[in-house]
Design a protein around this nucleic acid. Structure first.
Lengths: 333, 333
DNA sequence: CTGAAAGCGCTAACAT
DNA sequence: ATGTTAGCGCTTTCAG
């Protein structure tokens, strides 16, 4: 009825409680005979070590705090799924924290630390320097996912967003587009800034100025408005780069269904992320892929790297390919 | 540098360690003077109680194990988001477990129990009776989300799937459809069975037999094939009910883009869930809403209900409305 | 290699 | 109302 403890197993096996502990501690020295005896008793009682009690001594809770803000951009569920599965392979599990906005990040981080997590992945929000110090002091590694901060001292994993922006510009130039527009994401984010900079820099090199620029804030409703604005005038863009797929999907509804333009003949569209939806025939969106698996793998590596909590912050950028689909025309020539 | 304990606070405040504990234990009796003194010292040191150490005594880890299998059906991220936010309000947090298939559910449940969780939400998979007994024995309440099992003794929260199926049938009948088809989800699930039964029963009452039935297994690729099968013959359905939105989205790509039919003129489509995507203009899908917030609220209520671990299993069904959009025609008359 | 003993940070009697 | 004491289940010295 009650919970089975190592004491119970010890009694049944006729050994000391510490012997039981050793059998379940990888790398401890126990004879095979002892191990067999203990395992037998443990199986009979259905014993499993209490991770929380163990954490009190070892300092390892095998819990990783994961903070996300919104899951309606399909990229984040995807990351969560991979992260969760990968962590599990190493015997860790993600404790989820939804942070609606940046304001209560201090409170959220405090809650995370209450659970004595072994690491933190911030997949959506930023963090105050004060909290950063707390984590450093507690020796808890923190990894920013899909964003980085110039000034603060955090490890970070992102795609190579600048280069991604460049690739999109090159595609538009090669296809002979003249009226090229950009729909920006949330301006506070590094992803937004880098993608735009790569895009605009490359256009400039080819002597092309942005025909239009709107802000969609990575948000569905705002992107609808931004798209309507963009096509309100007589002459409209013939190619648009959206800072992520989510906004491109939203815009496609407006462009095709509401305004009656044809993609890619009237206007070419490119997104960023390559979420599963992008490959669906109904969208068929050309986009820059964020290599989710590799990004997660790098994040975990950073998290588990022995001295990553104290080491100099590392920013890992993972290259992602441009995936050509039917929302863009073939390059000419 | 090191971690701050209640001992440190006690020393600084010049009180006993248990006094500190009491100040941070809601409902314990402490004088205001004592509370102030302790809080001051605690704030100065940045002290917060260690949840894991506390759990060792109280038996409450404030962790809820949440098991999901796939997150590509947008319904689950939505649930996760709401569940996470709601749990947080009560000082609980979800520990995520991705279970790829049912086979390793025993192992997954064992891992969950290692963390001494205060409850379990199974949002996607089933569970063996053996594990059920373990949870019962440990006094850990389990709630099935969006599925239920006749035989096993679990609490469950679902939408009223049977009634939802009825509503769709009534809509098709009222709109005068004659060749009505159904695309089934994964046959093992109660959601699939109930939705189909409500649908078919209502059609039968009106003297209508199913024109076609395919299986999409709640899966993208299989739904593409199922849809192509369905429209392979000369005469094709003029109305199709998909057991969830996810499959309807997949099918819409085939029906509109690949086969060139028009929705709803050539064929009406209805889904189930009302995920955010369903209201996007590009889909604009008529569907039965699963009231996510209310379903989550009920699940949490079941989880926290004092004696829910021992009580008779309760199955809560939440009614959801039919949301009319442009993938169906207006009822005639 | 094994057992005895100490103690991780905390709460909950038990005293006063 | 506060301090003292005894553990929660476990790992990890320390002896032998």
């Amino acid at each position: 009825m009650a919970i089975v403890t190592s004491q119970d197993v010890a009694k049944l096996a006729g050994v000391s409680q510490s012997a039981v502990s050793r059998v379940f501690t990888p790398g401890a020295s126990v004879s095979k005979k002892m191990a067999d005896k203990v395992r037998l008793a443990a199986d009979e009682l259905g014993y499993r070590p209490n991770i929380l009690a163990r954490s009190l001594i070892t300092g390892n809770s095998r819990i990783i705090g994961v903070v996300v803000s919104y899951l309606n951009n399909q990229f984040y569920p995807e990351i969560l799924e991979i992260l969760s599965a990968e962590l599990r392979k190493s015997g860790y599990h993600p404790l989820m924290f939804m942070a609606s906005d940046n304001d209560d990040m201090d409170e959220v981080m405090a809650e995370i630390l209450d659970y004595q997590v072994d690491g933190v992945v911030l997949a959506s929000v930023s963090m105050s320097s004060a909290l950063a110090d707390r984590c450093k002091a507690a020796g808890i590694p923190v990894v920013l996912f899909n964003r980085y901060l110039e000034k603060d001292n955090f490890h970070a994993v992102t795609a190579n967003n600048y280069q991604g922006g460049c690739k999109v510009a090159e595609l538009f130039i090669a296809a002979g587009h003249k009226r090229i527009a950009y729909v920006a994401g949330w301006e506070e984010t590094s992803t937004q800034r880098d993608r735009e900079k790569g895009f605009v820099d490359t256009l400039k090199k080819a002597g092309i100025e942005l025909f239009d620029r709107q802000v969609g804030n990575y948000n569905y409703e705002e992107t609808l408005l931004a798209t309507r604005n963009m096509f309100a005038n007589e002459t409209h863009p013939d190619a648009v780069f959206f800072a992520n797929d989510h906004m491109a999907f939203a815009a496609m509804g407006v462009i095709e269904k509401e305004l009656g333009f044809r993609v890619p003949d009237d206007v070419a569209m490119v997104g960023f992320d390559d979420v599963p939806l992008a490959s669906w025939p109904i969208f068929n969106l050309t986009t820059v892929r964020q290599p989710a698996k590799r990004m997660v793998a790098e994040a975990i590596r950073l998290l588990f790297d022995a001295n990553s909590a104290s080491a100099q912050p590392i920013h890992i950028e993972v290259d992602g390919p441009l995936i050509l689909r039917n929302s863009t025309k073939e390059p000419q020539g």
